[in-house]
Amino acid sequence: MNFQEIIQTLQTFWANHGCLVVQPYDLEKGASTFNPATFLRVLGPEPWSSANVEPCRRPKDGRYGENPNRGQHYYQFQVILKPAPADIQDLYRQSLAQIGLPLDQHDIRFTEDDWESPTLGAAGLGWQVWLDGLEITQFTYFQQMGGIELNPIAGEITYGLERIAMFLQGVESLFDIEWGHGVKYGDLFHANEVQWSTYNFEASDPQTLFDAFTASEKETQRLLGLNLVLPAYDYLVKSSHLFNLLDARGAISVSERVGYITRLRNLAKGVAQGYLKHREDLGHPLLKK
């Protein structure tokens, strides 16, 4: 199965199990948790089920296209089920079978992993799912988001698409994954890895990034003050990515790092509280009457 077929198959599978196939969010982010379909929708009492592919950026993970297993840009497939159904593990196993994994010939194991995102004030308990010792999925029951205890609890399934594709296609490097029609992942993205690694580690201008960080942090706060919680959220996402760029550039010292994370978490808390109120004001329209 090629890369685009894997995505299509997962979309179809989860659509058939009641998910809205929402789209990737049009901002740079480190993980699909930043997609409003996750961060915002898991808050509050309204039910929500969605699935989406998500391009993610982690500037620090760039290896100039030289590491067969790592890139600064990659894809996640994200599923949110709120409330988490009792058969959520079974559904996940079925989805793996759908994309052509012979479960009877491999070792699928749920290995303890407590997930935490200090920047988002988020925490959850669950597992890394191993496929013959390789981590292919992060499986989490969210407990907290934006510092707020969640109820009902959402289940989050995050597939690492490249790893799964490498496994299914039996290739040793992510750049050898077939995307579709004979075109390889490397044909599409290798140059990006080289150029972005150079930018992230060497060429980015820390001062510009610092200024941008400060500006978007301020903008988040200003917008929160105006009760424009959805635009405020975008500026929080931008701030977070700018922080990641600064971090990759080595522009933030170990001791300063904690301070930046706290600033981001405070923004995230502000947004989460604002969003809860916003949905309440709307009368929780997604709650079944």
Partner: peptide, 19 residues
């Protein structure tokens, strides 16, 4: 590993690649 059905030959390559 935890799979009474599998032929370990199929599980080995994945384990090796990770290591």
């Amino acid at each position: 590993y935890d799979n009474p059905l599998a032929d370990p030959v199929n599980i080995r390559p994945g384990c090796e690649r990770v290591l």
